[in-house]
Amino acid sequence: MVATELDNDANLERILAEHAGMEGPLLPILHAVQDTVGHISPAHVARIAKALNLSRAEVHGVVSFYHYFRQQEPGRHVVHICRAEACQAMHCEQTEQHARRELGVDYGGTSADGLFTLEAAYCLGNCAAGPTVMVDEKLYGRVTPERLAAILADWRSR
């Protein structure tokens, strides 16, 4: 645990150094932290605030405003399911139901085995071949419940 904390600190200092002198650096820093560490903790918020001469409340306000930023560690993979109109027109609610059932969680939750965090998305830009699901950065079209089961099985076996 201690080692991870130290690693995180080193990562954070490196990220802050890389973004020094940038215009409007807060979102790029938050992205870099989340990409590297997986989430943005209260300790990260405090250190980032100090580096940018902002209050912790200001940084926390930004982290909590955006749906994409997470304050808890996610599962190994993040499953985004599109809930927007074009996917609804192709009955994505059935795909959503399957995801909730198979992973045993609702949106924002992580499956008990720690493998998948389930997230809602509001359009992934694949609107001519819905329902659409994205696992990490891999996009899938025409995702019926059966196809989702096969996709999750594939990611489990990786």
């Binding site: 409007g24 650096p25 807060l26 979102l27 790029p28 938050l30 992205h31 940018l52 306000g61 930004v62 405003f65 955006y66 749906h67 994409y68 930023f69 998305a121 509001y122």
Partner: peptide
């Protein structure tokens, strides 16, 4: 290129500018 963070409101141009400046959109 600057990445957004999952906020539909950033399609509204002034919210987008706030976000680029590193603020709540």
């Amino acid at each position: 290129v600057r990445m957004g963070a999952g906020a539909y409101i950033c399609g509204e141009e002034t919210a987008l500018l706030e976000s680029l400046e590193g603020k709540r959109a």
